[in-house]
Design a protein around this nucleic acid. Structure first.
Lengths: 213, 213, 213, 213
DNA sequence: CATGAATGAGGGTTCATTCAT
DNA sequence: TATGAATGAACCCTCATTCAT
């Protein structure tokens, strides 16, 4: 790692803690620079502007770290259910182990403008693609239901995990996030599981049919 | 409705469209006032500050409108599964029918500071309580599983719905949100359903047990 | 006293306490109106603007109350020294008995713009005229020195009294202002006294002459 | 003097003339910056806020310039009467030579809030201490009377000088302030002079005794 | 490469004053 | 005469960004 990369990471780390501490909008570039032990102007040699720092922070985390880790983890697994389990476990451990990071991804990154969120899409898309790949694999193998699209399944899985992490962050971490793994996994597995081997699914029929009225 | 309430609503509506158009942080009080056809200072006769507008907008929506509607809808229903269905249907129709509102609730309200989000909690809590009541009812009646806590079930349900709406908003509404109702319902129902009547649930065992390795 | 005058006094009294409590600039017309138990707009039926209230308050006090009282007090006295004594005594008792008023006259009235101070001149001029009349009378009678002009004598007398009152106000009134009467009188009397009956006044010669060098 | 100090003085001078011209409250930071030929924000690199400028201006003048000068002047003098003379002369020349400064100190600085005046106290206290030291020295040497406390004597001296300067400022300077030196000195000297060597002081007796009634 | 002093646009908020009722 | 809702000008201050050194 050359000098440039070192300073780059230095700024990113400083930004991480400053954003987490005081929120994105109230954090000033000057404070980040001070924390990084460099001059204000130096920040602009590595990042084009304040939003760029947040974008890079997000991308570095989701696209360049979390996603590869999750991909690697899932790659060697055959059973789609186990893939899902490992994915859930990894997600909750990843954020549960780094509160500062969680706070930024869950709270501060959402304080950014539409444009910046747009710029974050590529990062999150890689993660989404992985989720959808797990689903698709499960559907092909007949383990996961086909009456729910990849996309919807992904939204349920990611939305659930996201909400669980956000609640944990906002709860001031009164419990370890990892303790939620099994429970969340159970819910998500059955959400996408293929129950077609069971005859008569009154619970999959249209609601009206089992209406008590 | 007296004059005061009319002007109050006037400002709230103006704020709604301005927030949706340019985002909370880039929206200026002056612009809201202009859109409402009133003087800048008048805004401060009805709201204590800019944040207050967003807070009231959120509270008026979630606590005073969406929640009561959902509560009423669910009240007369006996079957927990149907309750869940109606809840999901209502949520997606509610936001699907008002893009401007959805954009604010899903995107802009998250641009606010931690403090403001804290102030929004009471509003959302009423909605959360309703979800948990549905779950609890289903658990008592033996229809919903008991190996998932109310809180986790609520996180999965709300997180999923939230993500579905957010994706719809960010997708520039290329499809009607209501078209997602059945699919999402199917996933969420099975996520919380009580399958204990079926013997041998390999899919509920610990992942390791069905590991192919 | 008719209704009009009653309300006029009502506002003036409310203003007096509000100005004293929070200072002229931080006091709002609205707060004065509330304290007076009337509508905001009503204030403008009796006063042309906020500055006018302060002006009237000052004029009512200095020109219409303090000055006449002092004039009346001095009128029946023959000895200029006694006149001075009574004047000093009256001044310090007058302000010493009403802290709220003192605070406004000494502190708040000086926070006004040059224009407003200009408008206050007529009020204070009457008081100044009285002081100068006392001096002139003393000079005519040979009791007070003539090598100091009326105007300068007045500046010394008023300036001293003013400073004494101001210090008392700023001291949070840890002592009764009236306790200062004799001391201040002694100083002011000798300041203007005619010592020409004493031969050789080394202390009135030009300083250089008694220089020790 | 380095660059920083130059710009600091630049702003202070600009503020001095702007305050004098339009008064403290009507002067805007923006106008001061423009007069100093710098950007609005630059002001805040040298002063924490608008009040701070006034405070520093006052302190720089009274505490760091006028007081040391007066102290130095008085130091080498033995005769308390001469000390007083030099003090008076210096005071009137100091302000008489700089109308802009006088206007601010005499008029604008009094437009500030109580808090800011509180912050100005340390500056003026140094000046007060010097006056009291002169008095004390005179009392010890038997030249100044002891039936008037240091504090009261100081109030008379400072109050008189202050009033003389204020009247000069408000008179639009139709006469040189320095022309007042001898007259004012004569009054102040006799105000604090020890006349006990003269027997029978009818003019120091209680007023009642020489009452004509 | 690095700096940090300088910038200046921008915005939330207050409040004296007005005027329709 | 009395009201008080409405006004909108005015202002302090912040801070992301630049650029001369």
């Amino acid at each position: 790692m050359n000098k440039k990369e070192i300073k780059y990471g230095l700024i990113l780390n400083a930004a991480k803690s400053v954003f987490a501490e005081m929120g994105y909008h109230k954090a000033s570039v000057s404070k980040i620079a001070k924390k990084a032990g460099i001059g204000d102007g130096t920040v602009y040699l590595y990042f084009s502007n304040k939003e760029d720092i947040l974008k890079k922070l997000f991308h570095n985390t989701i696209h360049d770290d979390l996603s590869p880790k999750a991909e690697e983890l899932v790659e060697g697994i055959n059973d789609p259910r186990l893939k899902l389990y490992e994915f859930v476990r990894n997600h909750l451990h990843y954020f549960g182990d780094d509160y500062t990071l969680s706070r930024i991804i869950q709270i501060e990154a959402r304080q950014s403008s539409s444009e910046i969120r747009e710029a974050m899409k590529p990062g999150i898309r890689r993660y989404f693609t992985l989720i959808e790949a797990i689903i698709e694999d499960g559907q092909k193998k007949g383990v996961f239901r086909k009456d729910i699209s990849k996309k919807t399944a992904r939204q349920v899985i990611f939305g659930s995990l996201d909400e669980v992490v956000t609640c944990w962050v906002l709860s001031s971490r009164t419990y370890p996030l990892s303790s939620k793994v099994d429970e969340v996994y159970r819910a998500l597995l059955t959400a996408v599981y293929n129950f077609s081997f069971i005859e008569n699914f009154p619970w999959t029929m249209q609601p009206k049919e089992f209406s008590t009225k």
